[in-house]
Write a protein that binds this DNA or RNA. Sequence first.
DNA 1: GTGAAAGCGCTAACAG
DNA 2: CTGTTAGCGCTTTCAC
Lengths: 352, 352
Amino acid sequence: MEKNSHITLDDIAKRLNVSKVTVSKALRGHPDISKETTKLVQKIALELGYTPNYMARNLSSKRSNTIGVVVPKIAHFFFSAVIEAIYDTAFHNNYEIILTVSQENSEREAKHIESLLAMRVDGLIVSITQQTRDTAIFNKVKKQGIPLTFVDRILNIPGANTITVDDRGGTFQAIEHAIKLGYTKIAHLAGFPEINIGLRRYQGFEDAMKKNNLPINSDWVIYGGFGEEAGYRGFMKMYNSNNLPEFIFAVTYPVALGVYAAVQEVGMKIPNDIDIMCFGNSDVNRFITPALSCVDQPTEKLGRSAVELTLNQIKNFDSFKPQSIEIPTELLLRETCSKNGKFKSKFALDGI
Amino acid sequence: MEKNSHITLDDIAKRLNVSKVTVSKALRGHPDISKETTKLVQKIALELGYTPNYMARNLSSKRSNTIGVVVPKIAHFFFSAVIEAIYDTAFHNNYEIILTVSQENSEREAKHIESLLAMRVDGLIVSITQQTRDTAIFNKVKKQGIPLTFVDRILNIPGANTITVDDRGGTFQAIEHAIKLGYTKIAHLAGFPEINIGLRRYQGFEDAMKKNNLPINSDWVIYGGFGEEAGYRGFMKMYNSNNLPEFIFAVTYPVALGVYAAVQEVGMKIPNDIDIMCFGNSDVNRFITPALSCVDQPTEKLGRSAVELTLNQIKNFDSFKPQSIEIPTELLLRETCSKNGKFKSKFALDGI
DNA sequence: GTGAAAGCGCTAACAG
DNA sequence: CTGTTAGCGCTTTCAC
């Protein structure tokens, strides 16, 4: 029960009358050491309850077997799913993850990155905050030669990898679907244009409208953020000006939920009075009434690719060329924006 | 851009013709060093882009300023909220968190704990998997003198702290509420009795039934797990035996969602044909129709307390006595189990 | 196959 | 106030 009473290599070595080098090698299964010695060492190590000291190991080997991760939020469907995939992939590659949370605060983000550098992570995976504009800290990361991969919310840093979903194409597909259903008066609650996902999703909207020769009504393109309030306010603005569209595409699912709230408040009904769809899936999309159709982001693939790409760069540092990967999305039709009724029940349970 | 070209204390020392001890102290703001030297050192450190090496620091100081965390899941409302609180609290105390995810797999849990021990975390916070029965690894943690705090899903380990919510009292309150509304035929979908939350919630159910002289019908106490399928199967079992209760208390919200699915499938309606409530809140509770009343767990407080307690033990190692904290819950009434209609609209947005 | 020597970058203890 | 000495526990040459 004593504090700081750890068994060391030397303890094992003395017990067996060998040197600690032998023990070190045996424990790592180095071919230098004979089978018998190796077995013996491992037996004693177990017996003594030896726990290696990674700090010492990493200090002398100059690698940490660790990837640092910075995300803006955890308690959010998208991020928690991506994070889970990151953890899984790292685990299967025998790497540790050190996760930090910026809480959408860019100063905190920078602090976390400093810490991660100080911990000598072998690579870094970042999804930036909504407010990140300064690139200094990221340039520092690259200057120290640390592989850097941006996920979903990206920055243009020379030498960094980026992994995004096809925001533009996914949105395009969704809008085209709405148009095929007969909608022509189409609104877009668009987040912020300074953030890449806001910009790209808007472009997809624009693409689809142009291709179908539909006018873009500037009253129906509303910026204001990615949260519920943005959706609520966005709808109310259109409602109060007595100029409502037939269909709304929301930049995120919380924005769509804000619209649901506003629509109910004014006594209208989705999807009959006004129809809606959004970018991004969540549990709520599935269970809300009417169930909310959306552009589904492959979170698992995003997280996995981020780790694999970073690992790849760590292991092939000299020959590696920075990559930008864009992952396709899928249209997930439920009760909204889906007149044909070909959707699964929202209560359909997986595997039953 | 070179790999592994880090500035060290010595580099700064040589530049200023002082010893590296002076630099080390100056950088940490040690009172030994004069204001001018300190300032000068900090200036040069910044200029050179110095990043301290925590591995070296921790190796020699024998502390890591780090708390290890093991949770069964991330992409789950309850855990992601607790984790976020853990991160926040650690951040404000200048501690780092190393989070690992067991994916409800006890072998993986043990592996992660070994890693965290090897990283020499100063303390450990754990919420065990559904299948954890073996206590060996936790005893090892205590043997190494590492402060250990269990959160929500606990194990009985001598010397460990536990932080739980009042599962028994919260359930009691919920069942009493249902009884006051006039229900007497009450069912409980109860998870697994081997897990503390399963056991405690069942006890709360039992308490309320006994106190109100209501019989407990063994056909209406159904075990089977904490997920959606458990809820689906539990309801179907009662339905198929032509013996339905008036009210169901679900051990978790996924179990309740499974019941929603089953109820819809057989063409019944909640809350008129059968009413329901559950332990645990989530976004879905709020947005589903009818909105699902529940026992609300104070996730923020759980996470915060876990970190504070662990930190307390780290800092007062010798005088510290292990603690068991139980945090009260709150009844959160929405559209189910709430005949008086005094609930807020499910679409009510915070702060609007 | 095995081990002795050197050092990773830093901090703690003590001496000046 | 500043510097010297000695490690922390491990891995990496390079001899034997």
